[in-house]
């Protein structure tokens, strides 16, 4: 592991939410949203985190941005643990985020100029209104919002979802970040606008040598934008590796199901997926968390939790019977 090339890394990161039940006898139970996750993003690399809602991928994103405090584990940013670190302001400048819902991502009372240049004001990076304005114009043309002068004078409710999501990218870029976390950036957009936003992200990532973490449930989007994939299920990473490897040769039954479920314009018979039911957070300790939905689950899966092991070079999987 070469530290100097890694931008962010988590070590056995955990986030458990406590639920107490009962009034007289308090029983504590935990929802293990993120349960021992170690991921790594290199400088200039685009990585995706794939999973269904409830898999803990959004929580992991929030942990990476210090929006939630982890229960246990470490987050190393450029080699330094940033939890309880006093260099947060610097971290805030280098790591930015794009949110799932573009319609609520902006302060509805401010116009787009104020919204987009807010980070510059917060970090005291501009001296004059003129400078602020020219930076804003520059940012908007970077993300393909035209004409920038008109967009800047609008209020969030006057723009479409696609326009807002681009504006969201522009705001994130205003600080020249090194890492961009995008949480389902296209899931609320019309299918016809998705590719545009993804393309914008893709070209910016190359141009600015940005590291990108794309959080998504859509393996098609993940494979389009990123070169490495982490597949997450109920708080654990179940498979990770190069995108091409995973697509050509998925090892975990969950990954296979996720790929199978992507609909395209190639009509096919909507047959049975090789995956049962829905993601449910009720599982016992020491079982494979996917066993309740797995078509291949057997005795071993119900008594022993599989560990993430490297089966091929750079291709890890947490399954007792991979690649069926």
């Amino acid at each position: 592991m070469t530290l100097n090339n890694t931008i962010i890394e988590t070590l056995d990161l955990k986030k458990w939410y406590t639920i107490s039940r009962g009034i007289i006898r308090r029983q504590k139970s935990y929802v293990k949203a993120v349960d021992g996750v170690s991921i790594r993003i290199e400088k200039g690399e685009a990585v995706s985190l794939v999973g269904e809602s409830g898999s803990g991928k959004t929580t992991l994103g929030k942990l990476l941005l210090l929006l939630e405090e982890p229960t246990d584990g470490k987050i190393l940013f450029e080699g330094n643990n940033i939890i309880h670190n006093n260099r947060k302001k610097e971290f805030r400048r280098k790591v930015q985020m794009i949110f799932q819902n573009p319609y609520t991502s902006f302060d509805p009372r401010l116009n787009m100029f104020e919204n987009i240049t807010e980070p510059l004001v917060v970090h005291n990076l501009v001296n004059s209104y003129k400078e602020r304005f020219s930076i804003a114009i520059n940012l908007l043309s970077k993300v393909g919002l035209n004409p920038p002068e008109v967009i800047l004078s609008k209020y969030p409710h006057q723009l479409s979802g696609g326009q807002l999501q681009r504006a969201s990218i522009a705001r994130a870029l205003s600080l020249n970040p090194e890492l961009l976390v995008a949480d389902e950036p296209t899931s609320m957009l019309d299918a016809s606008l998705r590719i545009g936003v993804l393309n914008t992200l893709k070209s910016l990532q190359k141009e600015m040598k940005l590291s990108v973490l794309l959080i998504t449930h859509d393996l098609a989007a993940a494979s389009y934008l990123t070169s490495r994939v982490y597949v997450m299920y109920l708080g654990k990473i179940v498979e990770c590796g190069d995108t091409q490897d995973i697509i050509d040769h998925p090892l975990h039954p969950y990954t296979i199901a996720l790929m199978d479920a992507v609909l395209t314009t190639k009509i096919r018979n909507l047959g049975e997926l090789k995956i049962k039911g829905e993601l449910t957070p009720n599982y016992k300790d020491n079982v494979c968390r996917f066993s309740s939905r797995c078509p291949y689950a057997n005795e071993k899966c119900l008594t022993q939790e599989p560990k993430l092991v490297e089966l091929e070079k750079g291709h890890f999987v947490a399954c007792h019977y991979p690649s069926y």
């Binding site: 299918a191 606008l193 590719i195 859509d218 098609a220 989007a221 389009y224």
Partner: peptide, 19 residues
């Protein structure tokens, strides 16, 4: 503009993009 699983190169489609 349909995305498929796999790395299919997509041209930026100006027509649907144009807002």
């Amino acid at each position: 503009v349909q995305l498929m699983v796999g790395r299919i190169k997509k041209e930026d489609l100006k027509i649907v993009e144009k807002q």
